[in-house]
Amino acid sequence: TTQFTVHSPEQAEQWKEYAKQKGLEVHVQKKNGTWHVTIH
């Protein structure tokens, strides 16, 4: 599991796309103005 924080919805979307291409599961949670992205 990879977990990191991004600071814009655009970055979060890019990671979603990346994960989809790799066939991975991605979870994005918005918290205090940042987005926590978890890739399984």
Rank of each mutant, 00 (worst) to 15 (best):
K16I: 15
K20A: 09
G23S: 04
K22G: 04
H27Q: 09
K31P: 01
F4L: 07
A19V: 03
G23K: 05
T34E: 13
H27R: 08
T38S: 06
K22Q: 11
H27A: 06
K16A: 10
H7D: 14
V6G: 02
E25K: 12
Q21D: 08
H27I: 12
V26G: 02
T5V: 14
I39N: 00
Q11P: 02
T2R: 14
F4I: 10
K31T: 10
V37L: 05
Q11C: 14
K31A: 08
P9A: 15
Q11R: 07
V37G: 01
K22T: 07
Q14W: 15
H40F: 15
P9S: 14
V6D: 01
V37D: 00
K20I: 10
Q11G: 05
H7A: 12
E10L: 08
H27F: 11
E13M: 10
L24F: 11
T38W: 09
Q29E: 14
V37K: 01
Q14I: 11
Y18F: 09
F4W: 04
V26I: 15
N32T: 03
H40P: 03
G33P: 01
E17F: 09
Y18K: 03
H40W: 15
H7T: 12
W15K: 01
V28A: 02
V37R: 00
K16S: 06
K30Y: 15
K16N: 04
K30Q: 13
E10V: 07
A19T: 02
H7P: 08
N32Q: 07
T38H: 04
G33E: 07
T5L: 10
H36A: 07
K22F: 13
V6T: 06
G33L: 05
H40E: 08
V28Y: 03
W15S: 01
V26Y: 10
H36Q: 13
V37Q: 00
T5C: 15
Q29K: 10
Q11Y: 05
A12N: 02
G33H: 06
K22D: 03
T2M: 15
W15Y: 04
S8Q: 04
Y18W: 15
K16E: 08
T5S: 07
T1I: 14
V28L: 06
H36C: 13
Q14V: 10
G33N: 09
T34P: 01
A12P: 01
T5K: 07
K30H: 14
H7G: 11
T5M: 10
A12L: 13
Y18C: 08
H7I: 08
H7S: 13
H7N: 13
T5I: 14
Y18E: 02
H40K: 11
I39R: 00
Q29F: 12
K16G: 04
H36Y: 15
H40I: 14
T38L: 07
F4S: 02
K30C: 13
Q3K: 12
P9K: 15
